[in-house]
Design a protein around this nucleic acid. Structure first.
Lengths: 240, 240
DNA sequence: TGGAATTGTAGCGGTTTGTATCAGGCAACC
DNA sequence: GGTTGCCTGATACAAACCGCTACAATTCCA
């Protein structure tokens, strides 16, 4: 793993969130906190995570229900935290698709060990193009072929994309019409966090625009949001 | 899962062996018992198992030691049974490479849930379950005959593969659409870890591409992921 | 044991990508 | 309306990465 793994901690108790994220950060991981299932969904959409630590008891959507959703999607492994410690609940957690669980109160060291264990198991690579792997999608006058990593222009034919152009485009297509900050884009495409003078994303956007915008001086597909980031301002539809 | 999973239960107490194997059999699994590490090795060599349930405390070779061996080999997932229930030991079990553990005395239903959880986890990333052996698979314009270690091109006929080309191709076919780092590939094909200037995998990819890519200059089947590794970007289907 | 095939190592060169820098544009404020 | 300051677009350059060839080491087999 080139980058330290990124963990999302979901718990409604602020104190637990903070102590856990701090402990994980101290032990060489990146940790982000979410306060409920809605927050979790937002964070998952906005960044890249290698594992989710999920509390069972939460206001709003239940932890078990949230876990079931994540497991069905299969994109990210889950460790459940249960305050009950009762067998039926513990078993329910596993049967629902959690990769592991831990009874509260727990030893942080043990949580860390379990996270490492689950990560080791699921350390095989992620799919290249995310949910778009193996598909072809159309937007405006272009069709992206994710297998061949090329764009097909309705008139001009094939346009090859470099790796970073391709990753950036895939990330934006998966989040069409959402405003994505440079930080988010850098996290999603390269899995790293930006330095203070980082113009990497600006540069890549510029290069990508040259390949997809009919009029580079007045970009329509990738719109700039001043002080916000960038936004793919077009509809995306799947192609047979 | 076509076949019911086959579980090997290793414990020196005859009573536990029997009750566990009986319980697993009643719940749709095949279960076999072994009374110590030596017996375990014999059973593993004689047949195929999907998971090993391993007691920590055993006469002869220690359970932790046996677990370390199995984990190093990486062929089969392990669930440890510990009579102690003490944290330090539990953590040691995970750090040694066990996929999960359970403290005695345990609820058989929970053991079953954990077995299912680990099996689900370890089968998720292996679409063909590593059991490409003895099968024939098709991808793009090629059919790989694993028995003869030969590719059959739809038009050009048979293409022989060297050992390392074959191993590399099998590993990638088993993980189609996943991005595999050079480290992972070297580990999976040769069982060793890469040095700092190791270009072995690049070289083997290059040689393999020459045999399978219609246009070597623009590879379509095995794609390079800059800073990531390689990815087999095509569907793989089993052939009768 | 000798020769052929296979596999690992070294190095060159092209491509891609991150960083630095400058120029233009938008907004706020006087 | 002009000016100032920040933000973004574009260019240039340097470093990193990867493909390929050539060669050395190893293995395999007769």
């Amino acid at each position: 793993m080139g980058q330290p793994p990124h963990i999302l901690v979901v718990d409604d108790h602020a104190q637990i969130r903070e102590s856990v994220t701090r402990y994980l950060a101290k032990n060489g991981m990146r940790a982000t906190a979410a306060k409920d299932a809605t927050d979790m969904d937002a964070k998952l959409a906005a960044g890249h995570f290698d594992l989710v630590v999920l509390d069972v008891m939460m206001p709003g959507e239940d932890g078990l229900s949230a876990c079931r959703r994540l497991a069905a999607e299969g994109a990210v492994p889950v460790i459940m935290l249960t305050a009950l410690g009762e067998e039926p609940d513990r078993i329910a957690g596993l049967e629902i698709g959690a990769d592991d669980y831990l009874a509260k109160p727990f030893n942080p060291r043990e949580l860390l060990a379990r996270i490492r264990s689950v990560l080791r198991r699921s350390s095989r690579g992620e799919p290249l193009a995310g949910k778009l792997a193996g598909r072809r999608v159309r937007f405006e006058h272009l069709v992206l072929d994710t297998d061949r990593q090329i764009l097909v222009d309705d008139e001009q034919g094939e346009i090859p994309l470099t790796d970073s152009e391709f990753r950036l485009l895939v990330v934006m297509l998966e989040r069409a019409r959402m405003v994505l900050s440079r930080d988010q884009l850098l996290d999603l495409t390269a899995g790293r966090t930006a330095g203070p003078l980082d113009r990497t994303i600006d540069n890549q956007i510029s290069r990508l625009r040259r390949k997809i915008e009919p009029d580079v001086l007045r970009p329509r597909i990738i719109r700039t949001v001043r002080n916000g980031g960038y936004c793919l301002a077009t509809d995306v539809e799947e192609q047979a």
